[in-house]
Design a protein around this nucleic acid. Structure first.
Lengths: 194, 194
DNA sequence: GTTGATTGCTTGACAGTGTCAAGTCGCACC
DNA sequence: GGTGCGACTTGACACTGTCAAGCAATCAAC
């Protein structure tokens, strides 16, 4: 028999939750709705994840893990260009999975001190931090924070639909955000090196 | 008899919702909980606001109105310094009213096309846009967007508690964010003027 | 000055939710 | 062969948003 062929209910529930999130947004991720989708009893999710916040936390961890994988896959020779590419990837991820990205930053409905959550988030931001460090920037942590804030802000504003009214209706959010990331993140780094 | 002495149930409900939001966060703002706090029947909020999204939308409008007022009160001689001051005020507002600020940008639980919501949000961002314009920046709308994204990102990251782990435990979020706004927003503008 | 309509709210019900206590089933281990 | 234990299920409770109906006051019209 093949290894790990049984999809271990817990795993089934998690992927049901991700589907529910993509289909009906954050509000759709309820203990009972997810159980229904996974074909188990209404109390099964609570058995594995404790409560609703536990389920959402597990989903968020999955999200940070996927985001990390996407960032790891980014490659670029020039350090500054790499930081910009990471930023574009971050924005693209937020654009492709808006509900997931929103959930990942809604700590009031998560277990904010969950070690897995902290670790998975830290590993995502760690990638950006090391890329910033390789540019030779002086205060790595400040530049990392400002870069993160910038791309995350773009994700939020794009999700809220306020970019188009500001820039113009015929501009694609993702294109606009990417060009802004390119232009200003690299500019930021240039002024911060030395 | 004094003008507008009667606190018009609707107004009472709205301020009860704001209190509930400040006390128990976004999840605490339920139709029934707000009704209880306001001392009216459980269906009264729905009577005035239609549904829960309607109530939340009204609260968000209140938030954007307050934010606008805070931004209008900002004064500075140098145009670039004014933009920075607006950014600091934005961050401070988000820091003082985290739950409200979060709600204001949760369009999935609001009525995103509500005209009052759009108008109040537009008036807030308009203040930043005109300040940016007065610096003589080339592409006003792009610089406005990037500045907005930056400060909003800082608000989100501060709320999520990820600034301290990144920068250091003895640094105050608000101070860190303010200094970043000062340093980089003004740098941004300097490189963008001509 | 009675009628009719509108407004501002309440009462009551319904389906759905998260959570908890108890129970059932199978399986490993002694 | 018992005994514990993990993986669930069943059933209940309090709570939620929403809807239909009703009730009291107001106000315009005739």
């Amino acid at each position: 028999m093949s290894a790990s062929s049984a999809p271990s209910t817990r795993r089934t529930l998690l992927s049901a939750a991700l589907d529910e999130l993509a289909d009906h947004g954050h509000a759709g991720v309820g203990l009972r709705a997810v159980a229904r989708r996974a074909g188990v009893s209404h109390a099964a999710p609570a058995h594995f994840f404790g409560d609703r916040a536990g389920l959402l936390t597990a989903v968020a961890v999955e999200g940070f893990t996927d985001l990390t994988a996407a960032l790891v896959a980014v490659d670029a020779k020039d350090p500054a260009e790499k930081v910009a590419a990471l930023g574009r990837t971050y924005v693209a991820f937020g654009s492709r999975y808006p509900a997931l990205m929103e959930l990942m930053f809604r700590s009031t409905e998560l277990h904010p001190d969950d070690p897995d959550l902290r670790a998975s988030r830290q590993s995502a931001i760690g990638i950006l931090a090391t890329a910033v460090a390789q540019t030779g920037a002086e205060d790595v942590r400040e530049v990392t924070l400002i870069s993160w804030a910038l791309v995350h802000g773009l994700v939020v504003l794009s999700r809220e639909g306020v970019i188009a009214p500001l820039i113009g209706p015929n501009a694609d959010d993702l294109t606009v955000a990417s060009s802004l990331v390119d232009r200003y993140v690299t500019g930021l780094l240039a002024s911060s090196v030395d």
